[in-house]
Write a protein that binds this DNA or RNA. Structure first.
Length: 422
RNA sequence: GGAGAGAUGGCAGAGUGGUCGAAUGCGGUAGUCUUGAAAACUAUUGAGGGUCACACCUCCGGGGGUUCGAAUCCCUCUCUCUCCGCCA
């Protein structure tokens, strides 16, 4: 959620920025500032009322001690009046605050100046393309065929025991999953990320903290008996570890990584998008999360992008990096880079990582702060990215590295799998 | 699942219905001393709102109530811990 102080000082900048998302927020922000003004006035009135009431209470206390009952009784009457007033003012302030909050949470993050304007994926800006796109000819098999032939992934068994979108990995398929998780975690750890193993379910406060609620309510699996949500990404528990914390300067930048299973309902998806490993309800992902000084966060973002690019290079997969346009960016992001790997048989790009800087959008809600050089408390910036999401990486590995009925694993992976070919 | 205990500042831990945003200790920060460090001593040290800055207001798990006045009394919810049961 945007900081009200930011909107007070930079309302026009926010309006201009949000246009890049295709949103005209002018009236909205006007309303917000208006409500903010009213709210502060109400708060002020309330405070004064309370101040007087406090003073009277103290005076009454003194009078009682001196035994001046009658004088105290007079003041009690005034106090009763104030109490009525306080009630009204309190209700008023609360009502204004809720109205303000409601508008505020509906406003997405303001895109960074580098973010191109645009409506959809077509307006994204390709900023790098790395690796050779090989023409595998007519015989190239899509990953689901390879996975089925070699009994790596059993979609049928997943359907049997759970449902569509919950595949069973078997044999070398299962070992490949385990190897990839280890490979990513090791790479991340070597790059300075501390490893965590978080809970897979989170409470409501956590889901709000990272912005899954109220924006993506229907995308999460929910367990009403316990009021818990299955995490759609490790970003949620990992970032929430630092909720309500004040970090010391030495702790920044804080770099964390975690493997987790991720759960997404993916309501409304269909067709080729959900074929094979393209889109699942449960999948594995290794995530990286950073908390940084505001002035450093875009450097950190570039650093994270470099790191993810390094992983894809080691996997010898052709990929491209996109800078998402305003309209394609997530609600909470100020700037996002997507990584897409080439799917040699499907002949299309598959998103495998999304690296974003949220600036204070998440930390404002979560109250993740740091004590600055000036000894004052400021909001930190938060960032995260996938490093990496497994299913589409597996798809790309199988498709791109197939040759003569075999799949040759990249060298970097071989020590983790314990086998070179599938 | 059953029974009991508890929830106070970074941590530990006091707190009689009024001057308690809260003793004390530890920790943190700054200083004195020291060649340097340790120790000792001194000072300082919660967060949010508000203000140019003060003032002022809010917060002792959450919500509600009693009272002129609540960390303190009452109700309720949540959570944590201990014991028992079950169990990877």
């Amino acid at each position: 959620m945007l900081q009200i102080s930011y909107l007070r000082d930079n309302g026009e900048e926010a309006v201009a920025g949000l246009k890049k998302r295709g949103i005209n927020a002018e009236q909205n922000i006007k309303d917000i500032l208006n409500l903010d003004q009213q709210r502060r006035q109400a708060q002020n009135d309330l405070d004064q009322c309370l101040a007087e009431a406090n003073k009277i209470s103290k005076t009454i206390g003194g009078l009682f001690k001196e035994g001046k009952r009658s004088e105290a009784d007079v003041l009690k009457e005034r106090s009763a009046e104030l109490k009525e007033q306080t009630k009204d003012l309190q209700a008023q302030e609360e009502q204004l605050r809720h109205a303000l909050d409601e508008l505020l949470v509906q406003l997405p993050n303001v895109p960074f100046h580098l973010v191109p304007a645009g409506k959809s994926a077509e307006d994204n800006e390709e900023i790098a393309r790395v690796g050779e796109i090989k023409d595998l000819g007519e015989n190239a098999k899509p990953h689901w065929e390879i996975a089925e032939e070699k009994k790596l992934i059993r979609f049928d068994l997943g359907v049997k025991i759970t449902g569509a979108g919950f595949p069973v990995y078997q044999g070398k398929g299962a070992r490949l999953q385990r190897a990839l998780i280890n490979f990513f975690l090791e790479e991340n750890r070597n790059a300075g990320y501390e490893e965590y193993q978080p809970p897979l379910f989170v409470n409501e406060a956590s889901a709000y903290g990272t912005g899954q609620l109220p924006d993506k309510e229907g995308q999460m699996y929910y367990m009403p008996e316990d009021n818990l949500y299955a995490i759609p990404t490790a970003e949620v528990p990992i970032t929430n570890i630092f909720r309500d914390e004040i970090l010391e300067l030495e702790e920044l930048p804080l770099k964390a990584t975690a493997y987790s299973a991720c759960f997404r309902r993916e309501a409304g998806s269909y067709g080729k998008d959900v074929r094979g490993l393209n889109r699942l309800h449960q999948f594995d992902k290794v995530e990286i999360v950073c908390l940084s000084l505001p002035e450093k966060s875009f450097d950190i973002l570039e650093e994270m992008v470099e790191h993810v690019a390094g992983l894809l290079k080691k996997l010898e997969l052709p990929y491209r990096i996109l800078r998402l346009c305003g309209g394609d960016m997530g609600f909470t992001s100020a700037m996002t880079y997507d990584f897409e790997v080439w799917s040699a048989a499907q002949k299309r790009w598959l998103e495998v990582s999304s690296v974003s800087n949220f600036q204070t959008f998440q930390t404002n809600r979560m109250k993740i702060r740091y004590r600055g050089e000036d000894k004052k408390i400021h909001l930190a910036h938060s960032l995260n990215g996938s490093a990496l999401a497994l299913p589409r990486i597996v798809a790309a590995l199988l498709e791109n590295h197939q040759e003569g009925g075999e799949v040759h694993l990249p060298e970097a992976l071989q020590s983790f799998t314990g086998f070179k070919t599938i």
